[in-house]
Computed example of a mutant assay.
Amino acid sequence: MDKLSEEDIEKRLLHFPDWEYYDQALHAEFEFENFKDCFSAMSRIAFECEALNHHPDWSNTYNILKISLSTHDVKDVTHKDFILAKAIDAIVIPEDE
């Protein structure tokens, strides 16, 4: 998979308002009501990651989930990262937003 140009990444990010591009990765931070809700979202995201065979760098502190996406083979962002970002957004962002 080829890495995307910075221009292409910025253009795609217009559809992902919770994500930013820096340090050759997509980054987002999500806040949940409590630890249980955060961990539940992480579990659901894990299934998507396995299905896509693409895994984030992430951390969790109580109700905060921080995620970084990059394609390790190319050391930057590819289309695959946006596919996973879309799946993550579908899990963590309420439909009424």
Score class of each variant (00 low, 15 high):
residue 1 M to F: 06
residue 2 D to I: 08
residue 4 L to K: 03
residue 4 L to P: 01
residue 5 S to P: 15
residue 5 S to Y: 14
residue 6 E to K: 03
residue 9 I to E: 01
residue 10 E to G: 04
residue 10 E to Q: 14
residue 11 K to A: 15
residue 13 L to D: 00
residue 13 L to V: 02
residue 13 L to C: 04
residue 14 L to Y: 05
residue 14 L to S: 13
residue 16 F to C: 06
residue 16 F to Y: 15
residue 17 P to Q: 07
residue 17 P to Y: 06
residue 17 P to E: 08
residue 18 D to P: 01
residue 19 W to I: 07
residue 19 W to D: 02
residue 21 Y to K: 11
residue 23 D to H: 13
residue 24 Q to H: 13
residue 27 H to A: 12
residue 28 A to G: 15
residue 30 F to Y: 12
residue 30 F to L: 01
residue 31 E to I: 14
residue 32 F to I: 10
residue 34 N to W: 10
residue 34 N to S: 10
residue 34 N to M: 05
residue 34 N to K: 08
residue 35 F to M: 06
residue 35 F to A: 13
residue 36 K to G: 09
residue 38 C to K: 03
residue 39 F to V: 10
residue 40 S to L: 12
residue 42 M to D: 11
residue 42 M to T: 07
residue 43 S to E: 06
residue 45 I to W: 00
residue 45 I to D: 01
residue 46 A to W: 08
residue 46 A to I: 10
residue 47 F to V: 09
residue 47 F to M: 12
residue 48 E to A: 11
residue 49 C to R: 04
residue 49 C to A: 09
residue 50 E to H: 10
residue 50 E to I: 07
residue 50 E to P: 07
residue 52 L to E: 13
residue 53 N to T: 05
residue 54 H to S: 02
residue 54 H to R: 03
residue 54 H to N: 03
residue 56 P to T: 02
residue 57 D to R: 11
residue 57 D to K: 08
residue 58 W to D: 08
residue 60 N to I: 04
residue 62 Y to L: 05
residue 62 Y to P: 06
residue 62 Y to V: 03
residue 62 Y to M: 03
residue 64 I to E: 00
residue 64 I to T: 14
residue 64 I to N: 06
residue 65 L to I: 01
residue 67 I to F: 06
residue 67 I to Y: 10
residue 68 S to E: 15
residue 68 S to D: 15
residue 68 S to P: 00
residue 69 L to T: 05
residue 69 L to D: 06
residue 70 S to A: 11
residue 70 S to K: 11
residue 74 V to T: 15
residue 74 V to N: 02
residue 76 D to Q: 01
residue 76 D to F: 05
residue 78 T to W: 07
residue 79 H to A: 12
residue 79 H to G: 11
residue 79 H to N: 14
residue 79 H to I: 15
residue 79 H to K: 13
residue 80 K to N: 03
residue 80 K to D: 08
residue 81 D to T: 06
residue 83 I to D: 04
residue 85 A to E: 04
residue 86 K to F: 08
residue 86 K to A: 11
residue 87 A to I: 00
residue 88 I to Q: 11
residue 89 D to P: 10
residue 90 A to L: 12
residue 91 I to G: 00
residue 92 V to F: 02
residue 94 P to W: 10
residue 95 E to P: 04
residue 95 E to R: 11
residue 95 E to G: 11
residue 96 D to H: 15
residue 96 D to V: 09
residue 96 D to N: 15
residue 97 E to A: 04
residue 97 E to N: 11
residue 97 E to S: 09
